[in-house]
Design a protein around this nucleic acid. Structure first.
Lengths: 189, 189, 189, 189
DNA sequence: AATGAATGAGTCTTCATTCAT
DNA sequence: CATGAATGAAGACTCATTCAT
């Protein structure tokens, strides 16, 4: 069924992304990824010649793209930068709720402990730059100067990553929901 | 006698904390920790009956305490909350430089992928609460209302964790150094 | 066109012969042979329907032929049997030097551990018989009786194979250079 | 039964020596050695921290020692050097018959294709030196000059290794039995 | 005549843990 | 209180081969 709709490679990437996000690069074995993907043992190295590391990079790319789409979406339909930032936080809070309060940032979960540390971190930097760049663009669109927009985007990125960390520890999306107020994007108490 | 300056247990905890911080819970094997601690193979289960999980909790506790001391120190000698926050960011940036731009937050590195997920996350929440509580206390000392102080403390925590993530990806402490300006604790450009 | 100067098949055989000689039948994977030959993945089974075993037989045949040519050459231009034997030993010593003191007898390296043990050993026996026969022929040409010639040829063969073994262990061609003296083909000290 | 009489380590070494001798270092998997030794999966790395390579070295050492004992024995009860050499060849021929005409030289089978090539070959050189040294000692005992004794010993070594190669190919111990005559240790036809 | 995607059994090794001493 | 030998499941990865095209 599922096998017919997505390619083996895609299922591999998708499941890897999900599992790495939950339990980290070293916390997930290839056997589990293969099993959940319904993929035969040997097929992984056909699609990813460098094995687990390649798969992790592909998974981070995919998850990073998804996230970027979410960010773009939040800001595209927003009335202001503050509005977009607030919407984004709430969207991520909702996703966090749906994941059972388990998932961390898909990129850091996947790329911050791998063996190929340097390549992994460079890739993470690229993906993060894409996110921040997207938000910066929207900031400019809403009238901010390029510098101010980048500062706001980076501040939002840091806030989100940090709120995510706290949310995981507390098993609650509340930190993500509090973030807009903490950053002044929303009228406070 | 043989246990020179630190006990076997302490060396175990210290090395575990350092290694987990660099490569994550699943990224470090007990063999390596034992070897670097010069501890005999079987001694781990004497000091930590529940094995690796116990050791990780102890390591996170120790590292969490160190961090709390750093935080307290930054604010104790500060002239204002903004000053304390700025000092703290710069201190952590310097530590990050010293670590070769490798180490992440010791608590999330250690406790966010373990098998004993629930116990690990509860412990992480406790440690984080301690950090935030410390900063909150100082905020009150500097004249903030309890609520405002807690908000500022939580905002600083999130910022730090997020800046840390970005710093690891970019292999630069700059995000940590930029943080005070981004949060308005320092006069910006 | 694409097959520059040698056919795919020939490149396969040549590279296989070289690699098997260095690291043995089981010590070399088909992937490496294919890669070094610039041959497409699936082409091996086109040229060698029985796969690795077929390739090994072809490689041993080719290498065996080369060796036989070297032997014939040494004796053809010789003034006596002793002279031919001495020349042969020195030639092989020089080849051994050129190989970086790595290569063993191409036939035994390739055919003494294969899965198809019986077929492999029969082929090795054939090739060895060819070598010994060649030297025997030259012995007769130099006036030896057929029986004496065969004895001398077999003795030389054994000496060479044994010297080769010692040479590999000592990473020096000296054993091969000492052989003529040890067998009385050259005036000793 | 067998388990009671020999230690796990010894059974591992013994079975490894036998299997490597038959099919070479890369031709035998650890799984088979473990199984035939009745040893649990994880126990190998307890006894041989460096894994297969360590085991191969131990196996070669053991087999090399056995061989040296056989050599010493042949010469100790001999009436002359020629007698000792002849006895040795016949003994090895008989062993070759008993092995089903399969086994090659235990040392070269085990140590000439391993990954740790340099360490392997150095060890092989040591073991061979021990063999040649033993025979040299007996040559001196029988009145040969040290130089002459060493030459005779080395010649015998090479002859034996070469005869072994031919014997494997021909699946017959005859080459080993012919060797004394070929080397002049026995009155010829 | 020729290919490259796909496969699953197999490779060696490391894992966290238990146990007898 | 302390240890190191012993364990089997799991780790990532490579293997020679098959097959549809």
């Amino acid at each position: 069924m599922t096998e017919a709709l997505t390619s083996t490679r895609d299922r591999l990437v998708l499941n890897a992304a999900r599992l790495f996000q939950q339990r980290g690069y070293h916390g997930v074995g290839l056997a589990e990824i293969l099993a959940e993907s319904g993929a035969p043992k040997g097929s992984l190295y056909h699609h990813f010649p460098n094995g687990k590391a390649d798969l992790a990079l592909a998974a981070a790319d995919w998850a990073g793209g998804e996230m970027q789409r979410i960010m773009a979406d939040a800001f595209e339909h927003a009335a202001s930068f503050d509005d977009g930032a607030t919407t984004l936080c709430f969207k991520l809070a909702k996703l966090f709720d749906l994941s059972g309060h388990r998932d961390g940032c898909p990129v850091s979960s996947t790329l911050f402990e791998g063996a190929a540390n340097d390549a992994f971190r460079d890739r993470a930097a690229e993906i993060f730059a894409g996110w921040i760049g997207t938000v910066t663009t929207h900031g400019v669109r809403f009238g901010l100067s390029p510098d101010a927009a980048e500062m706001m985007a980076e501040r939002l990125f840091m806030g989100l990553e940090g709120a995510w960390v706290l949310a995981r520890a507390q098993k609650t999306a509340e930190p993500l929901r509090r973030l807009p107020r903490l950053l002044g994007h929303m009228p406070g108490a």
